[in-house]
């Protein structure tokens, strides 16, 4: 489990995160939602140790150390590989760089997305860049995967294909934490929602429980909490 406990962060006088707490379980897809500029990406960066913060973050009950970082990977929303590389070269690079690289899963994802080894990163559409990023991240044998806006700014078919990964065996029983500002087309794919606004968590809930107990979808809840 990823436990974020009362983390805060300031840029100058502006509070970006103001006592943010939530959990993301293994075997579940947790979605950090909120409009732009509410601290979603900063939260992911804090979990990855890419930005200083106050408060505690625990991975499987351990504070962040070199060891815990071997359990997590972060997939940003921009191209992560050099543009002149082919997909094959990018995969070889990952294989050299990471001991947890799983070539078998990488090949399965390549097949799943129908990507070609000889294509250069610079030739990829935005949707295909997102798929390559996802491939690079998911092919690592880690327990937790963080993704920043995996669905934003890409075409409908790429979105559907990426969504298909979430329901497939490729995700296995790993914990996934994604950020998004557009929830409607992935609503039935996710387990849990954390609504963030102005650096604070407004609500944290499981989507099926919310449907079952209150008959509300995620948009209903967002409207409620933003209006309150």
């Amino acid at each position: 489990m990823i436990e974020v406990k009362q983390i805060s962060k300031k840029f100058g006088r502006k509070k970006i995160l103001d006592g943010v707490s939530f959990t993301a379980n293994k075997g579940e897809i947790t979605c950090l939602i909120g409009i732009n500029g509410v601290g979603k990406t900063t939260t992911l960066k804090a979990i990855m140790g890419l930005t200083p913060y106050s408060g505690d973050i625990l991975i499987d009950n351990e504070k962040l150390t070199k060891h815990t970082y071997e359990k997590i990977t972060f997939i940003p929303d921009a191209a992560i590989m050099l543009p002149q590389m082919t997909i094959k070269q990018a995969m070889e690079f990952m294989n050299d760089f990471y001991t947890v690289w799983n070539q078998d899963r990488a090949d399965q994802m390549l097949e799943f997305f129908k990507l070609k080894l000889e294509t250069r990163i610079s030739e990829l559409s935005k949707g295909n860049v997102a798929k390559v990023n996802l491939l690079m991240g998911l092919a690592l044998d880690v327990d937790y995967i963080l993704m920043d806006e995996p669905f934003s700014g890409i075409d409908m078919f790429s979105r559907e294909q990426i969504a298909d990964v979430f329901t497939s065996h490729l995700i296995e029983d790993r914990g996934v934490l994604i950020t998004t500002h557009e929830i409607s087309d992935i609503e039935h794919l996710i387990d849990k929602v954390v609504i963030l606004d102005n650096g604070k968590v407004l609500k944290e809930f499981h989507t099926e429980d919310m449907r079952e107990n209150e008959g509300k979808n995620v948009i209903d809840v967002m409207r409620e909490v933003y209006r309150a």
């Binding site: 969504a163 298909d164 039935h188 794919l189």
Partner: peptide, 17 residues
């Protein structure tokens, strides 16, 4: 449950439930 999740495009935990 994985096949069902993939076919119906739903979360595997939901299929399990």
């Amino acid at each position: 449950r994985r096949e069902l999740a993939a076919t119906l495009n739903i979360n595997p935990n939901t299929a399990q439930k």
